[in-house]
Structure formats: structure tokens, C-alpha cells
Write a protein that binds this DNA or RNA. Structure first.
Lengths: 146, 146
DNA sequence: TGAAAATATTTGATATATCAAGTAATTTTC
DNA sequence: GAAAATTACTTGATATATCAAATATTTTCA
């Protein structure tokens, strides 16, 4: 067994796909709402129906807690989020979406939907399920072993 | 058709997988060579056998040219790369790996190999090929349409 | 109960991502 | 053959990523 060319590995193609998807998404949502990022939109989606703590959201969007602190600060300043101290546990920060955030989100939803459809055009349901399974295997492999 | 929960989309699991893999890789190569990033190691691999221009490398590792400028600057200062003006076309920057870079790379290779094996543990060849095809579809979809 | 450990978040430092604007070399075009 | 367009990069500004260290609160446990 020899050392594979780095550009021929499966993991390289994962990176390629996600970068292409991010570029498409960012390009398209910027047309609708300039000045919001793909990740910020994802955070709004997650908070749309229920409030969550900052750490919960960070885990869901795979962000480092330090990054999350800064992203939240920006989102609060843009009037997308409200951040308050959790009364049950004062260490925690409760995040909720603002009215403005909801408005923005409604404007963005059709485009988010469209981006997904464009990305997955011509990919069958079975194909997608299969990819999903394989990716989960990889994720679990990486998380369990060191 | 309704709006899918963002955390249940295929693209979310792509993101999850690549982040888990990056974390594993960075953790493990840092044990061998502190102070080098996964992407820097990938750049060394790409330059191992042939010199390339800065833009060529940037395209291969999916980096923005501005980012590439800064990454290269760091890698030159760490004595991983030599950067010279291309004599045929003086706009171009020729990148080549240093002797030190090669030494580092040899030290890292077994771990890079191991990371790939860990990530792909229990993933069959057919499964991998299938995922590769699906990912390529997604990449092409994102690149062609707007 | 009170000290130690754990949890949730913040801040600082440095690296990378991204966009826009700028520079220098090369190519194209009329 | 010179102006205009293109290419390959650089720089500045701002956002995000990551690690380490710090703070405040809560939990655990001897």
C-alpha cells in the first residue's frame, strides 16, 4: 500500500463539496440580505422555535465557544438576537431570536431551501441516505479514536 | 414539502464530518510536529515532488488567494517553503519545499496516513467510491448553477 | 459546610477566510 | 505599438477559528 495523492482522497472531496456549497449559499443569501453569513442564518434557524443557551447552539453549529461568543456579539449588535442571563443557572447565556431576526429569516428561507435543492439536484434519495450513513461513520470514527 | 430542520440536512452532516476529521488530524499531527497546521501539511504534500505557483497551490487546497499569500508568508518564515519570482512570468510566485520542509513531511507522513485510516475505518471501498461520486455531484451542482 | 472540581462563558493572541481595492507584469486589441 | 484588458498576486479591513488562560457560577464530596 502506498501513500495516496492528497488530492485523491475521499476527505479531500468532502472539503471540496462543502466549500463549493458554502460559496454558493453565501453568494445567494447575500443577494437577499447583505451582511448576514451562512452560519448566522443557520443560528437563526436553530433559534427560530425555541430559545437555547449559547453553548447548546455552539455545539449544534460545530463552533468553538470562543468563536460563538464573538458571533453572538455581532448578531446582538445587528439586532438578530437577544442575549440574557439564564435565571436558573447564571453561568448560562440564553439566546433568543428578535422580531427583526424572524423577519430576516422569513425573507431568507426560500433561498436557503433553493440552495439545498440546487446542491442536491440529481442526487437520489437513496444516494443521499447512503452518503449520510458513510459520513456518520467517518464522524464517529474521528470522534472515538485518537 | 416542508422546510427541513437544518440539523437534519445532508449538508449539515458533511460539515460535521469534515470538522471531526480536521480536529482529529490537527490533534494528532501536533503531537508529531507542534506548530504546523493540517492545511500547511497538505501544502507540503502537494509541493513534495514538483514546484508549483502560488495560485496553482491555492486552487488545489481551495484557498482564497489572499489567504494563500498569508499562509505562504508564514510557511516561508518557518523555513518550510522557498518563494521566488517565476522567470518566465514575473507575475507568478514559484513555491518550492525546503529541505527542512521535506524532513518535517517525512516525520508527518505516517501520522497523516494513520489519520486517514482511522477516519475511514470500517468504510468499505465501494461505500467510499459511492460517497465520492455523490460528493462530486454536489460540488458540480454548486459550481455550475447560481 | 467549605474546599475542590466542573461548567459556561469571556478575553487575548495569532492564524485563516473573505471582500474590495490596489500593484505589477503580461496579453489582447484596434 | 500603445492603450485596455487580463492575470497573479498583495494589502487592508473585518469576521471567524483555535488555543490558552481567566472569571463567575454551580456542583460535588470529604
Amino acid at each position: 500500500m502506498n501513500f495516496k495523492t492528497p488530492t485523491n482522497t475521499a476527505l479531500y472531496s468532502i472539503e471540496e463539496a462543502i466549500k463549493a456549497y458554502r460559496k454558493l449559499s453565501q453568494h445567494n443569501i447575500s443577494q437577499i440580505v447583505p451582511n448576514i453569513t451562512v452560519d448566522q442564518a443557520l443560528i437563526l434557524l436553530i433559534l427560530e422555535n425555541n430559545d437555547k443557551t449559547q453553548t447548546e447552539v455552539a455545539d449544534m453549529v460545530f463552533k468553538d465557544y470562543a468563536s460563538m461568543t464573538r458571533i453572538v456579539k455581532l448578531m446582538v449588535s445587528k439586532d438578530y438576537l437577544i442575549k440574557t442571563v439564564d435565571n436558573q443557572d447564571k453561568r448560562k447565556a440564553k439566546l433568543e431570536i428578535t422580531k427583526n431576526g424572524k423577519t430576516i429569516l422569513e425573507k431568507l428561507k426560500p433561498m436557503i431551501q433553493r440552495n439545498r435543492e440546487v446542491a442536491l439536484n440529481n442526487v437520489s434519495h437513496e444516494e443521499l441516505e447512503q452518503m449520510y450513513k458513510t459520513l456518520n461513520k467517518i464522524t464517529q470514527n474521528c470522534k472515538s479514536k485518537k
